[in-house]
């Protein structure tokens, strides 16, 4: 029972982690808490729905297409909604991200309606049993892809010129410009990467939770809680925070009371904010 709850928590936790990565990236490069992260997940899920279900494109092709579409939308949104506010005050930018999220959500609601769309299982949903332990292949994939992406992102930020320049630009835009780094391009790239990561998170949960315009709201907030939990400056922290949150939720549901699941997630976040404001991982990348 305990182990089973842990395994369930791990899968949903890595989805939270992927969303948290988006918050971390946006915080790093834009110094803004970007509350439209959950809607990036929603858009990603819709793209996969459009390509795979509506246009009947094979999943192996639909995935890269949906990722490309996510990247393109990220680019357009950055140009229209984020770029104009680069120099604005922090609170204005924060509000702008909330506004962008609401706009995107309602746009999708107008286009697709408020009803959920079913999504076929990609990874198989019939459980495999190892003695009494039940493992759903889908969850295995979600966890695996989540971790793989986090590791890739970390390598990108630590090992590549672009990644390092991205971090440098995030820490000091003016000085980064003095190094010859094109700061605005770097910020655009960050936004696109964050949008794609969010989009992939959305694609991963599409078969689990269906696809609908509002699907990003709660999951986006959970991602935020995970980012705060792990440390808003840390890639590792984002994943750790996501996993802890996912497991805590499941344990709370299993052993305390399922009515308080969400409350426990946010209580955990508030506790961390009080006692360790820099998060579990602090400032280590």
């Amino acid at each position: 029972m305990l182990l089973q709850q842990l395994i369930q928590g791990l899968a949903i936790g890595s989805v939270y982690g992927l969303l948290a990565l988006g918050y971390v990236l946006m915080w790093q490069a834009w110094a803004v808490l970007d509350f439209a992260r959950g809607d990036a997940a929603m858009m990603g899920a819709f793209f996969l729905l459009i390509f795979n279900v509506f246009l009947k494109i094979h999943i192996l092709l639909a995935f890269p297409l949906a990722i490309a579409a996510s990247a393109l939308t990220g680019f357009i949104i950055e140009r229209l909604a984020y770029r104009p506010l680069v120099g604005a005050r922090e609170i204005n930018r924060l509000i702008a991200t909330i506004g962008a999220g609401i706009l995107i959500r309602n746009l999708y609601r107008v286009m697709f309606g408020a009803d959920p769309f079913p999504f076929p299982t990609i990874f198989g949903e019939h459980p495999i049993y190892i003695k009494h332990l039940m493992i759903v292949p889908q969850n295995l994939w979600i966890t695996g892809i989540g971790f793989a992406l986090a590791i890739l992102l970390r390598l990108f930020l630590l090992k590549t010129w672009r990644g390092k320049a991205m971090r440098a630009a995030a820490q000091d835009r003016e000085t980064a410009a003095l190094m010859g780094i094109r700061v605005k391009n770097s910020m655009t790239l960050t936004f696109v990467v964050a949008t794609v990561l969010g989009g992939i998170a959305g694609m991963l949960i599409a078969p689990l939770y269906f696809v609908m315009a509002d699907m990003g709201v709660l999951i986006g907030l959970k991602g935020f809680a995970a980012a705060v939990l792990g440390g808003i400056e840390s890639v590792t922290g984002a994943m750790v925070g996501g996993i802890i949150l996912g497991i805590a939720e499941n344990l709370a549901g299993g052993f305390i009371s399922s009515g308080y699941q969400t409350a426990i997630a946010f209580a955990l976040m508030i506790l961390v904010l009080i006692f360790r404001p820099s998060g579990i991982m602090g400032r280590r990348l």
Partner: peptide, 19 residues
């Protein structure tokens, strides 16, 4: 000075050679 605070010393040097 404006060194990049959360880049390592080596990474700071590398940024100088970005171009």
């Amino acid at each position: 000075r404006r060194v990049f605070p959360r880049l390592t010393v080596l990474e700071n040097l590398e940024m100088g050679a970005y171009l």
